[in-house]
Write a protein that binds this DNA or RNA. Structure first.
Lengths: 349, 349
DNA sequence: AAACAGTTTTGAAGCGCTTCATTTTCTGAA
DNA sequence: TTCAGAAAATGAAGCGCTTCAAAACTGTTT
């Protein structure tokens, strides 16, 4: 005579454990979630049953009964970009201790896809999402309403008072780089940035201009700006080649490290030595920068801190505290001087 | 007089939509999942209600009622390794069309953590998981029993007849590289591999030896093997420096591209030219290989294919077909010749 | 032996959805 | 106008879990 068990196939259910242990389902649930409430003797029996059956509680069912999800979504523009990967990793480390996992999603810079992913995350009822927006428009209001009121923290994008956000000051970073080059005595500087309507690049360029003005130099005269559509090594190389045709500057400041690597290739190809003939500065300080053939001076984004703060904001926000107010945190980048801009520095570093 | 709605807080529920549209819950469910079953007029009303309320169905509840999850887990050793990232990306592309998303998890090479992640994925009742095992032991049986019978496909690890697996033939790749170097006339070759008890490196080294024997050369005489604990640029550099102290070989074959980049730095630092003084071959053909200062000859792993096949196997396996039998697919790597081993090739490529 | 105050255990209700046997409504032919 | 059959809409049951009021046990005190 079959018991109440409808079908013994599929994964083991809590009820199966209860049956084997000879207790009620509530007791099994309690030994898992409130062990102190159940008698040690019973607890032992239940735990044994769990082990013999290899029971793994269905998280979906749990969440359905009100438990908070332990999944955090992260939507980035490009999973292959070292910067975003390092961010993902930092975030993961940050949420690890609170037993959360990161679900990494790739919007590929496509707004449609970005929306689809956010909806998907909302449908999964994840705890919340970190979003590095794909919009180039810094004032876009497309993030005001998010599907199924997903708790969101924006990365590298100012959320106004609609959302929490964590950004790194690009303007300040651009200024940092150019100030450094000016201090070294360079006067003809080129800024090699990605597509000019990507927020980050525009802000870095503005910072670069500011650093010049600050010292009483006219940017129009001393700063050549050149922009590329892509942001990869190839793009940097091509742009730098173009730049060289119009004359050799004293220094090139690139909008990111990949572009700087490309510029390096162009310079090496033209027989120019870095840093002897020309100084080179990148941005992001990805791992490769340190280990590039000539170690690359770069602007470091405080990625670990960014991950930690973003995680904290998100967990706080998604805890459902009605008193929560949106906060924006702006982090300061840091100049890391290496050989590519300063010949006094050991080649190895 | 309050209606049956218990609490209008939290996300919008299907029932809220039904109420607003003035229909039964079943009808709302049908307009979402079986639109053809509901009258166009009603459908319109319901769809409007969905839109005004911004309803996003709770995926957890859906899965609970038997729908297959749309999440696929991917557990890798190192999320910052370009090889795994490219794999993750390829996998993502592969499952995109079937509307699945990838949940990327980082085991950091830690067996404990790997287990924890697999349990977590089982608890989430994901559709299945791709696993790049952290065990160095190729015969480990720790993957025989997985938590909550999670459907799993192993990556880069032979699953025997317990699991499906997709691997790339490391032996063959090692042979490919060394054969290439021998054909170019090099006779004193060094193999610079990562920790010798990482399966992949051991197999590549074996392949290298085989290629020598094949040509009647004694590996003991012509092949110097040197291993490093790490697998990063720094490690490669240090190892190559050590190697140079004992004399300069004709060519260095590195167990991965990062090591090769490091070796390049060491060579450049010692004033040796690649490829004129010494040839260099990497492994994995990550994106950087093509764009390294001297474009790097490398062994390409067919990552796209790997992602596609793995995805297909997993979806098939997790479809629950009882007739499913575990398959192992072995992919062949490919030699990509670039400047670092062959001076006849244009510097730019 | 009865009364009491814990301490454990129980099991039904409910989370948001889908399914499906029923009921209701519509359609067109008789 | 009636009625069979198709089409559409209904709503209760159930997915696996947690919760919580109620029931069933302790053991201690009169």
């Amino acid at each position: 005579m079959p018991s109440k068990t409808p079908a013994p196939n599929g994964p083991v259910r809590l009820r199966d454990v209860a049956e084997l242990a000879g207790v009620a389902t509530g007791t099994v649930s309690n030994t898992i979630n409130h062990p102190e409430r159940v008698h040690p003797r019973t607890r032992k029996v239940v735990e044994d049953a769990i082990r013999t059956l290899g029971f793994v509680p269905n998280q979906q069912a749990r969440v359905l009964t009100g438990a908070a999800s332990s999944v955090i979504g992260l939507v980035v523009l490009d999973v292959e970009s070292p910067f975003y990967m390092e961010t993902a990793h930092a975030l993961e480390r940050a949420v690890r201790e609170s037993d959360h996992v990161v679900m990494l999603c790739n919007s590929e810079g496509d707004l449609e896809r970005e929306s689809a992913l956010l909806t998907m995350l909302a449908a999964q009822r994840v705890r919340g999402a970190l979003l590095a927006p794909a919009t180039p428009d810094p004032n876009s209001d497309r993030y005001v309403h998010l599907p199924g009121d997903l708790p969101v923290v924006l990365l590298d994008f100012d959320g106004g008072d609609q959302h929490c956000s964590v950004t790194v000051d690009n303007f300040s970073g651009g200024a940092l780089a150019v100030r450094h080059l000016l201090e070294l005595g360079h006067r003809r500087i080129a800024f090699l940035g990605g597509s000019p309507d990507l927020r980050q690049f525009a802000q870095r360029a503005a910072g670069a201009r500011h650093a010049m003005t600050e010292l009483g130099l006219d940017p129009d005269e001393h700063l050549t700006e050149i922009s590329v559509s892509g942001i990869g090594i190839r793009d940097g190389q091509r742009a730098a080649e173009l730049l060289l045709e119009a004359g050799t500057p004293d220094a090139i400041f690139c909008g990111n490290d990949m572009l700087a690597f490309g510029a390096y290739r162009a310079l090496a190809g033209a027989g120019l030595s870095v840093p002897d003939d020309i100084a080179l500065v990148g941005y992001d300080d990805i791992e490769f920068a340190r280990d590039w053939v000539v170690p690359m001076t770069s602007i470091r984004q405080p990625i670990d801190e960014l991950g930690q703060i973003a995680a904290r904001l998100l967990l706080e926000h998604s805890a459902g505290d009605p008193a929560h107010t949106h906060r924006r945190v702006v982090l300061e980048p840091e100049l890391v001087v290496r050989r590519s801009s300063d010949r006094r520095i050991d080649l190895r570093r």
